[in-house]
Design a protein around this nucleic acid. Structure first.
Length: 222
DNA sequence: AAAGCGCTCAACCGCAATACC
DNA sequence: TGGTATTGCGGTTGAGCGCTT
């Protein structure tokens, strides 16, 4: 058959248990890749795209079921505040939900996105208002680097590379920018007198010393 | 009982990036 | 190197469910 002229009519709508089982069996046999090929091999009248989505968002064995916990919600809020600012205003919101989902094992980007639309957005609009999240300033950074060095020297920071690292700041420290390395691996945020150093892409782990001691100076400022 | 309404979330869409030939 | 296919993303939709009237 000449594939250039073939027309396939896909089945749409909610997946049935039978379809799920067929898809799972096919993925177990051939692996979760080449989705168009899987869709053909499975004999389901579903597009490769639809098979991929069903697997990633529902059928994967490592999917975490159940409600979003308070800790997860807090993480979502904080990461959205951070990434929402950076990506929406500077990089067209690319990768935001998948990055957030990457910090929540077993949760999918679709789930996070739905949860945000359902709960978090409402809460934030009710309380502080979203405008607060979008109030980044852009300021010169050289004096701030010097100030960070002073803080390092003062040994006033408490480092935990596996969690958010919160570092006490002087009240007059006036800088509300985000800071990332060139690979977008690390983000620092100044807010409400605290610095939060966030490791976003495993296995990248960076201590505060690594950060401030970097001679590469490969940081740029949004 | 049933009609109307709002909410949730699985699924789809369109687009951009990447892979492949 | 250019065209096509595939993958992966965020935005959006709509079926189904539960609550209210």
């Amino acid at each position: 058959m000449d594939r250039r002229h073939s027309i396939r009519v896909w089945h749409r709508g909610t997946w049935t248990r039978e379809e799920d089982q067929v898809l799972i069996s096919c993925i177990e046999a051939h692996g979760a890749k080449k989705w168009s090929s899987i869709a053909r091999k499975a004999g389901l009248k579903r597009s490769g795209k639809s098979c991929r989505l069903r697997w990633l968002n529902y059928l994967r064995p490592d999917i975490k079921r159940g409600n979003i916990t308070e800790e997860e919600e807090d993480l979502i809020i904080r990461l959205h505040k951070l990434l929402g600012n950076r990506y929406f205003y500077f990089f067209s919101a690319c990768l935001m939900w998948s990055l957030i989902a990457g910090r929540l094992p077993g949760r999918t980007d679709n789930e996070i996105k739905n949860y945000w639309n359902k709960i978090v957005k409402k809460k934030m609009q009710k309380s502080t208002g979203l405008a607060h999240c979008h109030s980044l300033n852009t300021q010169p950074c050289t004096e701030n680097i010097a100030m960070l060095d002073e803080i390092k020297e003062a040994d006033s920071c408490n480092i935990d590379p596996n969690a958010f690292m919160e570092i006490e700041m002087e009240e007059n420290f006036n800088w509300s920018n985000s800071l990332t390395d060139v690979d977008n691996n690390l983000v620092i945020e100044a807010a409400a007198g605290n610095w939060m150093v966030r490791e976003l892409s495993p296995p990248f782990i960076c201590s505060f010393d690594d950060l401030l001691g970097s001679e590469d100076a490969l940081f740029y400022y949004n």
